[in-house]
Each structure stands twice: as structure tokens, then as C-alpha cells.
Amino acid sequence: MGTEREDDEPEVPLDARDAGERRTLAWVLCINLAQALGVGTVGLVASSTGLMGAALDNLADAGVYAVSLYAVGRTVTAKARVARLSGVLLIALGIGLLVEVIRRFSAGADPVGIAMIVTALVNAAVNVLCLRLLRPRREEGVHLKASWIFTTNDMLANAGIVLSGVAVMLTGSAVPDLLIGLVVVGIVLHGGWEILEQAREARRAADAA
């Protein structure tokens, strides 16, 4: 009972480093919410599974950053718990995207290649900004490592969307977009599993200390 209470309370009053973490996480949270809205809207209009996947990934990132804000200044156990929640969230969204890929494959929607390319490039540029904000703090806790993994996954997904957009334009087929949707599903599920592994390691280290 007493241990749970300690896990839920800050270890110490917020210092300058904690304030810096909060400021960084608040910035990337707002950025990813804007990305999810913008990319998701284009994905719907352009009938692109890849872009819808990228939007879901950005939304998952925003969720990670939101729960990571809670973890700032708290115990290692609390941070591991937040990272575990982030991993579960990412896996759940990956499964949701898989369902969407299957639905679009059955419906036979035709994506717009140029919209995929331009949107993915813009999204990737914004992700670079997020990585620059997170880089100095990625070793300051498992919750921030989780945030770094999420944003790195976004870069891989956007690179794939650009390539599939080119393929859609050259072939006139929706197959490349559906394939990149499946690739994004794999990236998302792998990232979620990696975060869960890091959370388990952090929890074991905290228990052994």
C-alpha cells in the first residue's frame, strides 16, 4: 500500500531538468496532435492506407508524450509503468491499422500518389524537428526512450509512404499503398513490443535496487 503511494508521487520537487523534460514533451505532444489531424485528413481525402497509418502513429505518439508528461519527476517504477502503457497503446493502434488495411483492400479504394508523397515528406520534416527536441533527453528515463522510439518509427513509416506513393503513380495500382500499410503495421507492432521490453527491464532494475 505504502509502496504504491510512493510510486505515484514525485521523487523530488521538479528541478530544472524536470522542467526541461516537461517543456520538450509538451512541444512534441502539440506537434504530433497537429500531425495526426493534418495527415489523417489528407489520408481520408486521398484514400491512402499508408497516410492513415502515419496519422494513427502520430496519434499514438501524442498519447505517449501525454503519459510521459505524467512520469516526469516520478520514480523509475512509475516511469516503467508509463512506458508499458505506451507500448500497449502502440500495439492496439497497430492492430487497428491492420483492420483498416484489410478493409481498404476489400473496398478497392484508389489512393492519390502525389498527395501521399508530399504529405509524407512534410510529416518527415516535422518528425526531424521532434527528434532534435528529444535527442538531448532520450537517455533521461525509459519514458523518454519510448518517445524516441515512437518518433524514429514515424521516420521509417514516412520514408515507406514516399516510396509507395511513387509506385502508385508509376503503376496506377493501390497495391503499393496497401503494402506500405502492412509495413507500417509491422513497424508499429515492433515498436510497441520494444517499449514493453524496455519497461520490463526498467522495472526489474528498480526491483533489484
Rank of each mutant, 00 (worst) to 15 (best):
R200T: 13
D57K: 03
L14T: 12
P136N: 01
V166F: 15
R203N: 01
T41H: 10
V168Q: 11
C30R: 08
G186M: 03
R103N: 00
L56V: 03
L129T: 07
L133V: 01
A159N: 07
L182E: 00
W27C: 03
R104E: 03
S47Q: 12
A46N: 14
W27L: 14
A125I: 10
S173H: 06
V12A: 05
G87D: 00
A36V: 08
A107N: 01
R103L: 02
A125T: 09
A124C: 02
G2D: 05
V76C: 13
V122R: 15
L182W: 03
E11L: 14
D18F: 03
V185T: 07
G165C: 12
S173K: 00
D7W: 04
G191D: 07
P13I: 06
I91K: 15
T3K: 00
D154M: 09
Q198V: 15
V184M: 06
E201R: 15
R104D: 06
A146R: 04
G160Y: 02
F105I: 04
L25M: 12
I31S: 08
T3L: 11
C130W: 00
A115S: 07
E11K: 14
A208E: 10
Q198G: 15
L156W: 06
R5V: 07
I195G: 04
D15E: 04
G141Q: 04
R138C: 00
D61P: 08
L97K: 07
T3Y: 10
D110Q: 13
M1A: 09
L90E: 13
V12Y: 14
E201L: 13
V45W: 15
R204M: 15
G96A: 13
I180H: 05
A199Y: 05
R22L: 10
G172F: 06
T3G: 00
A107S: 11
N32M: 13
V188P: 02
P136Q: 03
L14M: 12
N32R: 04
A157H: 12
G165L: 09
T49G: 14
G191M: 10
S106Q: 09
L89S: 11
E11N: 11
V72C: 06
V64N: 14
A174F: 12
V168N: 14
S147G: 13
N153D: 15
A16L: 08
H143A: 10
D57G: 08
A34I: 05
L189M: 06
H143N: 09
G94C: 08
A83H: 05
R23C: 03
A55S: 12
A19V: 06
R104H: 09
E197D: 07
